[in-house]
């Protein structure tokens, strides 16, 4: 008769050896399944332990697939896709010109307003102004605009290059600037603003002009459509890489989309090649977390 107890022990060892690869395989499979089912939760949990980029603006990055590459030599921007959840406060002030021979700026008034905001934050005392105070100032300005319910259309045309370059081209670019400050009319006629952008967009499709692209970039930035403003800033930059505005809008859009690191890299790359005060100011704001 055999030593059956010894045989039993050997059999148990054999079964363990036999099932071990399956256990490992099932474990790996279940890990993959758990990851696939809960990846959003896992990302969020991981994010909790990561240092915050910004202590003023709370931007939630949903997914940053890859760090963007900046090709300074070509003076063009190449950015990978990002998804961002943030809705900025917006005031819709657009201008477009049809007739006049002087081009002022594509987006004149809104820009001034934004500049005002930037300046209010970007002043020497910037570091002492806290986020709440800054927001309150913005709210006040919005309220002021809302108190004057009206909508006006201004005509404008390019003026800056003419003075600088002595350019007296017969066909100057014309813009129609629609200024909407009426709260109600804003809600009712917001489609008109988009119409303006779509008109410029159509024109761009025919002209491929960098200023049209820049106009669209600024317009979408004003609308809070940062994905689109980023896209059009890139297009504009591809057409004219010397355009400082396209660099700035692109960086601002990136920042608004939560990609502060990318935005700062872009500005640093630009400043390295061009001594731009605007870019430096913007970069400083971003680094201080004031943007």
């Amino acid at each position: 008769m055999y030593d059956v107890e010894l045989l039993e022990r050997e059999w148990r060892r054999y079964k363990i050896k036999q099932t071990l690869p399956w256990i490992g395989f099932s474990f790996v499979l279940s890990l993959i399944a758990v990851y696939l089912l809960n990846r959003e939760y896992i990302f969020n949990e991981i994010k909790k332990f990561m240092p915050k980029e910004d202590n003023i603006t709370k931007v939630v990055k949903v997914a940053v697939i890859k760090e963007p590459k900046i090709k300074v030599e070509k003076r063009c921007l190449e950015v990978n896709r990002t998804e961002v959840v943030e809705v900025a406060k917006e005031e819709v002030v657009l201008k477009r010109d049809v007739n006049s021979s002087n081009i002022k700026r594509d987006i004149e008034k809104p820009k001034e307003k934004i500049v005002k905001k930037e300046e209010s934050v970007d002043s020497e005392s910037l570091e002492t102004i806290d986020d709440k105070e800054y927001n309150r100032e913005i709210d006040k300005e919005i309220e002021k605009i809302q108190e004057k319910p009206k909508m006006s259309i201004e005509f404008a045309e390019e003026d800056r290059d003419i003075e600088e370059n002595g350019d007296d081209r017969p066909h100057r670019r014309k813009y129609l600037n629609i200024i909407v400050t009426d709260k109600d009319s804003l809600n009712e006629d917001s489609s008109k603003i988009f119409d303006t952008l779509s008109i410029v967009k159509e024109r761009y499709n025919q002209s491929n002009n960098y200023q049209d692209a820049l106009y669209l970039a600024e317009g979408y930035y004003q609308q809070g459509e940062y994905e689109l403003s980023q896209k059009w800033a890139l297009i504009s930059n591809n057409l004219n890489s010397n355009s400082e505005e396209s660099w700035l809008i692109f960086a601002k859009s990136k920042a608004k989309l939560g990609n502060y690191k990318v935005a700062e890299d872009i500005l640093e790359a630009y400043i390295k090649e061009n001594s731009s005060k605007k870019a430096e100011k913007l970069l400083k704001m971003m680094q201080l977390g004031k943007f």
């Binding site: 055999y2 059956v4 045989l7 039993e8 050997e10 059999w11 060892r13 054999y14 079964k15 050896k17």
Partner: peptide, 16 residues
């Protein structure tokens, strides 16, 4: 099945 496998171990059909 266990006893079949035990016998196979005993006869050397299975090497543990």
């Amino acid at each position: 099945k266990k006893i079949i496998e035990m016998s196979a171990i005993k006869l050397g059909f299975i090497n543990v």
